[in-house]
């Protein structure tokens, strides 16, 4: 793989009064797994579609190395491999026929044997698409995305609807793509997936990038220490004052105390409980996760 950086400059897309993507800038170095993390409606898919050439941005440029892909969309189509959020293929064709059909669209395609081998579809080579399971369809969609030996692979919510085993297999495949020197750009709203796979992450909401960096970096930058959780029945309010506390959040069943210094806050909490005669039921401490970063940045949960 030659390795060219992918740059999005000031990408903007408006639908009437709604700005779906707003002056978005991203610099994606070659050969990494780049994650776009955000809730539904954050503008991840629109961003991906403008980059892939499916949608024309109202403003902005997309560069692959020195090539302006908005001006030369054919280049994007030649060099990119795309897995759409809903990938449908002709139901009555076999896996092999489907791959052959997509091979015919490119000048230097990979061989069918390699593709089915890598995606573990050998047994299903002559099975019709309508007889494939969800996981097998997903692997076929990935195989089709790789047919043209692409430099950049776009995966839009690749693990949506997969069972845990299939997700793990998919992650292995994605890591394998990086090992071959390809750049992988994926969207997800699964924290663990983003944390596990992505070398770099951009957290998006309302069409903007809120922050960008390696997953650990983002956590450290926004949440230096930890989270203490106690049951709501404890009666602690969001306005309770404790040492080293960043803030207190009401989550579904628990109160989450986000802190910069775990020991100080914990000591304070114990003192508060004995002073007010309360039991600290369900007390639990953990280090901050991307979920907490996300809440910190957007004020809302990823699955909202």
């Amino acid at each position: 793989m030659s390795g060219k950086a992918l740059r999005l400059e000031g990408l903007t897309k408006r639908y009437g009064a709604v700005t779906a993507v707003d002056q978005l800038n991203l610099n994606i170095p070659p050969g990494i797994i780049f994650g776009l993390l955000g809730p539904n409606g954050a503008g991840k898919t629109t961003t991906l579609e403008m980059t892939e050439g499916l949608r024309r941005p109202d403003e902005g440029r997309v560069w692959l190395g020195e090539v302006d892909l908005i001006r030369h969309p054919a280049e994007a189509k030649r060099r990119f491999g795309v897995q759409l959020q809903t990938s449908a293929f002709f139901e009555l064709l076999t896996v092999k026929e489907t791959l052959e059909l997509f091979q015919s669209l490119y000048s230097h395609p990979l061989r069918v044997g390699d593709l089915v081998g890598r995606m573990d579809l050998e047994e299903k080579r002559n099975a019709r698409v309508d007889g494939l399971s969800g996981g097998q369809r997903q692997r076929l969609a990935l195989a089709v995305a790789l047919v043209n030996d692409p430099e950049v692979v776009f995966l839009d919510e690749p693990s949506a609807g997969l069972d845990p085993q299939a997700r793990r297999n998919l992650w292995e495949v994605i890591v394998g793509l990086k090992a071959e020197g390809r750049t992988v750009v994926l969207t997800t709203h699964y924290m663990d997936e983003a944390e596990m796979l992505a070398d770099r992450l951009a957290i998006m909401d309302h069409g903007r990038v809120l922050d960008e960096g390696a997953p650990r970096e983002l956590i450290e930058r926004h949440l230096p220490a930890a989270v203490i959780e106690v049951d709501r029945s404890t009666g602690i309010g969001t306005d309770t004052n404790l040492p080293a506390l960043v803030r207190i959040e009401e989550r579904e069943e628990v109160m989450a105390l986000v802190t910069q210094h775990l020991e100080d806050t914990l000591t304070g909490l114990v003192a508060w409980a004995s002073q007010h005669g309360r039991q600290l039921t369900g007390l639990k401490t953990r280090s901050a996760t991307l979920e907490d970063v996300f809440l910190e940045l957007t004020g809302r949960s990823l699955r909202e």
Binding site: E52, L54, F80, L84, A88, F89, F102, L105, Y106
Partner: peptide
């Protein structure tokens, strides 16, 4: 049907 299921979209990200 093809349009609804996204089959046409899939071809639009190819050089076809």
């Amino acid at each position: 049907r093809w349009k609804e299921k996204g089959i046409l979209r899939r071809f639009r990200v190819t050089p076809l």
